[in-house]
Amino acid sequence: MIGIRGGADTTRGGHLPDTVALFPTCLGDLVMPDTVEHAQHALGVCGLDVRPVRGGTCCGQPAFNAGFHPHARRVARVSVRALAQTTGPIVVPAGSCAAMMSRHWVGLFAGDRDAELARQVAGRVVEFSAVLATHLDVLERRHLSWPGTAGYHDSCHMLRELRLSGEPRAVLGCVRDLELVPLASADRCCGFGGTFSVRYPEVSVAMADSKLDDARSRGVDVLISADPGCLMQLGGRAERTGDTPRVIHIATLLHEAGLR
C-alpha cells in the first residue's frame, strides 16, 4: 500500500493534480457502475486526476480462492497488463479486490513471465476509502450531510489483509448528521466468501442474517461497506426479506451526502 496525497491545493499554484487510475473491478463494472462513478467523482473532488482503467476485467480472486490458480492467473493477467499501462496509484473501490491485488498477485505470478509486471502493479494498489482518508480536510470543507443512523461493516480482507478499519470510519466522520453506531458484529464475516456463498447458501444466508439482525437491533437505517462483494450479499439478503437496513457502498453514501 502506498499513501497518496493529491494536489488539492492547486489554487495555491504550481502543483498539478496527481493522476490516479481507477480500477472498477468486475462487480463494480457490471453490477454497481453507479457506485464506481460515485467513487470517481469523490476522488475528483479531492483534486485527483482520475483515469478509469480500460481493458482490465477482474483481479482473479474468485478462482484464486477456489484453488484454480492457472485460471486466476489467466484472468488477472489481463488486468495486470492493462494496469501496467497506467500511471500513479491504482485506486480500487473494493476492499477484497484491493487485498487480492496488493497481497496475492505477487505470489500468483511467481515464476511467471509477468511476475515483475505484477509486482510493480501490486505495489501501486490503494483502497478507495484509504485514499479519501488522506483528504479529510477536503471532505470537511464540503459540508456533507446525511441525516440518519449508520453502521459500518468491515470487509474481512480489507480489515485483516490491508488492516484498514479507521480510514473508512474517519471518512464517514466527515458526514454531518450521520450517526455512526458501533456494531458488535462489525468485523464478523457477512457470509459472502465468493464461491462459499453458492456452495453453502443456507449457511451463508444465516451468516448474513446474524449481521443484519445486529444492525437492526441498533436501529441502523443504512449499513455501509467498502466492498461490493459484501454489499451484494447483505443487500441481496435485506432486499429478499423486504427488511431494513439499506446496504450501500461508502462512495454512494458520500454521493448522497452531497459529494458530487
Binding site: 463494480g28 463494472d29 478509469p52 482503467v53 450479499q233 439478503r237
Partner: peptide
C-alpha cells in the same frame, strides 16, 4: 439459482461502467 436461495440476485446494469463515455487511458 443457489444464490437466489434467500437472496435477490443483483441485476447486471444495462450500462456497465466500461460502456459509459470515452475513457482515454
Amino acid at each position: 439459482g443457489r444464490w437466489a436461495r434467500g437472496r435477490t440476485i443483483p441485476t447486471p446494469a444495462r450500462r456497465p461502467f466500461h460502456s459509459r463515455g470515452e475513457r482515454d487511458v
